[in-house]
Design a protein around this nucleic acid. Structure first.
Lengths: 232, 232
DNA sequence: CGGTTCCTTGACCAGTTTCAATGCCCGTGG
DNA sequence: CCACGGGCATTGAAACTGGTCAAGGAACCG
């Protein structure tokens, strides 16, 4: 993803809980995360929080700033973070690769978000968490930060809850169930996927309905419209 | 949004339920919707469907194709659709404005999706639907297609359900409650917002907790981390 | 060590889903 | 012109997933 590396202008560090950007800021640089994890989030007035993006080592945060956008959702460090600053020049002075990289990063963001939308809208607790763990593992793997089905996983159960739209308590119970099922081992900020097959399977579909009748009748609007859609 | 109009190469029509693009396609053009509504969606193997984007008149569908991306989620017409085709040229032959427009459209997509993530992850049925109706009204208004708190609303309750991650049945009940509360009038594909203030209020926050104690104690991870985050 | 923060567990509650059935609206065809 | 059929809206009852509240214990850090 970060194959054609942008030129880092210099590098900065953030403590856990420190903001990389606040709402309405107009950043003069984007970051490439070198180490540590960060997230973008939204806070409702009564304290409910939803995390809308996760930034792992190698990720650009945030490509849209590159062409002068304002920050619409704050970014905060989930761990200690080291990041390369990549200045946003007015227009000239940047290679085509530079803009192409920004474009691709933005496209990746859109697709990742679309996946999260499916998760939040249509998946149950176990599917959401399985999906998240798979995504994290895959992204860490891409960056060479995962080996032998294992990688760092510094997210707290509260943070997992704010990503998956669940409650910390329910995340806890669901993780226990997944451990019991032999899918994962997750302790002291370290993730070990014991059954990759099973985890990926539970990430996209729930426990296959024991009752086949139920599954067949479960076809709501979408499947029913498909036939007519094929006609023309 | 579509201020600097791209040059349409020609124009096409789609029937309701017809696909504008299918997964894995590599489109040679993007569309600007001229008339009608469409959506991007994902289908789980058991028939659950989640809509991940809504395309209204004036919208680009989909900017990411502009630089040669493959289609990752299918696009289908929710009504009859007329759209302008805008060819994706290999690289040259396009103005700066062209690419700038694509960029801005993509940024808009990211922000809209982030809003939906908050909705799906942290809002209840009434808030989600209120939010959706507000967004639709605002977007229609921007395009000059809404007047006097009213606009077209061709979505069926099933489609609303697939956007908001709810059940058609529950969408129905929630809409009734909103009608009873005097917030909206919604019938025969036409939306009339009777209480814009109230609708916007219920879009971001639920009925303000009668019990203040509960609200104050309800501050989970995010609010609690704020203080420490401010330190450095 | 001492104080947080985080994880864990139990009991109870509630919003939402599921299942099922009825009626409405509208385009089509006899 | 009216009967038929299909999609859509509506309603009720029962079931369930996940949320809320509360409290104890483990882990971490200065």
């Amino acid at each position: 993803m970060a194959s054609l590396a942008l030129v880092p202008d210099n590098s900065v560090c953030f403590r856990q809980h420190q903001y990389l950007a606040r709402e309405h800021d107009r950043p003069d640089a984007i970051y490439r995360i070198e180490e540590g994890w960060a997230c973008r989030f939204h806070l409702l007035s009564d304290g409910r929080r939803q995390i809308t993006a996760l930034f792992l080592p190698g990720d650009y945060c945030e490509p849209q700033w590159g062409l002068g956008q304002r920050v619409t959702q704050p970014i905060v460090a989930l761990t200690r973070v080291r990041a390369a600053r990549i200045a946003c020049l007015p227009a000239a002075g940047r290679s085509c690769d530079h803009y192409y990289n920004l474009w691709m990063a933005l496209v990746t963001t859109v697709e990742r978000q679309a996946g999260w939308l499916v998760s939040l809208g249509r998946k149950n607790a176990q599917e959401r968490i399985a999906q998240l763990l798979c995504e994290i593992y895959d992204r860490m793997h891409e960056s060479g930060l995962a080996h032998a089905q294992q990688c760092a996983m510094p997210l707290t159960q509260s943070v997992i809850a704010d990503i998956t739209g669940l409650t910390p308590v329910h995340v806890n119970r669901t993780l226990q169930a997944m451990r019991m099922a032999g899918l994962i081992r997750l302790q002291s900020k370290w993730l070990h996927i014991r059954d990759m097959e099973g985890l990926r399977r539970s990430a996209t579909c729930p426990a296959p309905a024991l009752d086949t009748r139920k599954m067949l009748l479960n076809m709501r609007s979408a499947p029913m419209t498909l036939p007519s859609a094929v006609r023309f």
